[in-house]
Design a protein around this nucleic acid. Sequence first.
DNA 1: CGGTTGTTTGACGCAGTTCAAGCGGAGTGG
DNA 2: CCACTCCGCTTGAACTGCGTCAAACAACCG
Lengths: 222, 222
Amino acid sequence: MGPPRRLAARTDIVSEGDRPGTCLVLIEGLVGRYKQLKNGRRQILSFQVPGDFVDLHSFVLGRLDHSMAALCACRIAPISHSAMQEILNEHPRISLAFLRESMIDAAVFRDWVVNLGQRPGYGRLAHAFCELVCRLRAVGQMKGDSFHFPVTQEELGQAVGLSAVHVNRVMQRLKANGLVTHQAGQLIIEDWEGLQRAGDFEPSYLFLGGDGGPAGEGASPT
Amino acid sequence: MGPPRRLAARTDIVSEGDRPGTCLVLIEGLVGRYKQLKNGRRQILSFQVPGDFVDLHSFVLGRLDHSMAALCACRIAPISHSAMQEILNEHPRISLAFLRESMIDAAVFRDWVVNLGQRPGYGRLAHAFCELVCRLRAVGQMKGDSFHFPVTQEELGQAVGLSAVHVNRVMQRLKANGLVTHQAGQLIIEDWEGLQRAGDFEPSYLFLGGDGGPAGEGASPT
DNA sequence: CGGTTGTTTGACGCAGTTCAAGCGGAGTGG
DNA sequence: CCACTCCGCTTGAACTGCGTCAAACAACCG
């Protein structure tokens, strides 16, 4: 594992079509994976939290099918593909860990499909926040009931498939109902139970163990 | 690999939460992976075509995060988890193939996220059809410019996040524009170029090689 | 034949988009 | 220290894609 690179907020890390020679592990910060459409629209596919093996697939598939950008200042450690290959040769068991990582990745995407396909804006945002809380807590990145989330409403909209204007209105409803507040780059969970209910959230698809919420502990494999 | 099981149309194969002792390979037919929501709605996550290793993740993650159903009469071959384990022990290289399979799976889900999040109904259906064409052609299941697709408009709606009524109207527009026809359980591609344009389709995310379309050949790894 | 299941059509309502303008805070240069 | 600018948030109004409800229709089947 090479020394971590530091990246400024709002900078691209890798782009769709690239054939990088390294994999990346996010050490600190928040990164977004996204796809850009021809018509200018863009879809944020996922938010990645510290500890995530952020582009394992570049090693296996060679070419990237999507881009990644730092959403705030980040530290990212590269692992060369040759090092990856060596690891696999010498410790074949590790491949199961990689498999596990990539399958949880897929499970999370499946849940986004459900979220985008079936839930109205209100529940969709609630659900997205619930997932973030669970994943951040699992890696010890929650500060009490809040976390650092320096994302614009425009970007939130690109993640959940809503216009920035509508995200604004939905956020106001979430706040008015006492569920979450977003200010000064912090997302504050005011009512965890209520947020889960609003988002119809059920964290088993994250394969974290525990309920992952503010009282949970997480990170233990199932 | 055990002898293939035969399954009737519209029967569940495995259900969310199950802990099956085998993995399944689809030999013949069409299966849908789906998640059921508490409020009764359901999201079809993907259509699987013959040759697909349909629940590799049950081996790695133990528990299923979604259900699967046969959409028409199917043949499915089981592979016990212990046999999987043996394969991995004796041929560690195979793990790369499994990794590849699961990562393409994830890439496809990412594209569904984009499809649901960014495209209106018309393009969304067009895109879904394009993907099916490419994947079916790659495994030699296209009959000329058409394929067997015995799916109701209700189910199509559950796949692309639209109501059955709206699917109906969109299908009429697709037909009126000379792109596709759906009759007697067959989907007929009338204008492959046009369909790709309508769906803003670009097949690289499938990692098939070639353009995968009616004139393509597919199936060669990148 | 009647029953069941899927498709089609129409009318109506709403969630969410788009356009446009105003507002507030943070940074910059004079 | 103030003026200016920029960017993100907020608000309003008008529009529309899509959902829902309901009824008619078509195909299949026992």
